[in-house]
């Protein structure tokens, strides 16, 4: 017999029973008890009313621009990361110019083909082909060819 009265597991039985997650054998046992126990019946009735009341709160839809905003944020965050990484390389006095250029080329090669791209919009098919002009273009895009003091502040 399962009665909620003076039962340390009463709250759990009541919650699980009304949520439909009480295991079948215990649920059947509890249902049999409900026929004879008015106290438990009224507890179940109250909990069901709450459960149903909460169902009456309608879910909301995402606003139409939700995904686009998210992808734009991912993209801009990645650009910032890229800029910071490149600046660190270019303006570090401990890194000689030739070494910095080599590291830059490696970083660009490592960056462009895949995993650091924002998930959308889809990249162009030529992304894997890297040449000098492309690297220069990327640097231009990232404001890397102007000194830090003149470049816009990176947040």
């Amino acid at each position: 017999m399962i009665c909620l009265k003076d039962n340390s597991q009463g709250a759990e039985i009541l919650t699980d029973y009304c949520a439909g997650s009480l295991e079948a054998i215990r649920a059947a046992e509890f249902e049999a008890h409900l026929h004879d126990c008015g106290t438990c019946r009224s507890q179940v009735e109250l909990q069901r009313q709450v459960w149903n009341a909460l169902d009456a709160w309608p879910p909301v839809e995402a606003s139409p621009g939700f995904d686009a905003r998210l992808y734009a944020r991912i993209e801009s965050e990645q650009k910032r990361w890229w800029r910071r990484a490149m600046r660190g390389l270019l303006w570090n006095p401990l890194v000689p110019a030739a070494g910095a250029a080599a590291m830059l080329a490696i970083a660009v090669l490592a960056w462009i083909p895949g995993e650091h791209r924002a998930p959308q919009p889809a990249p162009s098919a030529s992304a894997e082909k890297i040449d000098v002009q492309q690297v220069e273009q990327a640097l231009d895009d990232m404001d890397l060819l102007i000194p830090v003091s003149q470049s816009p502040r990176v947040l």
């Binding site: 759990e12 109250l46 009313q49 009341a53 909460l54």
Partner: peptide, 14 residues
């Protein structure tokens, strides 16, 4: 369980 108990006292009259 405490949350449902509070909700029972507030909402069950509906």
């Amino acid at each position: 369980f405490r949350a449902y108990q509070t909700l029972r006292s507030r909402l069950a009259h509906m």
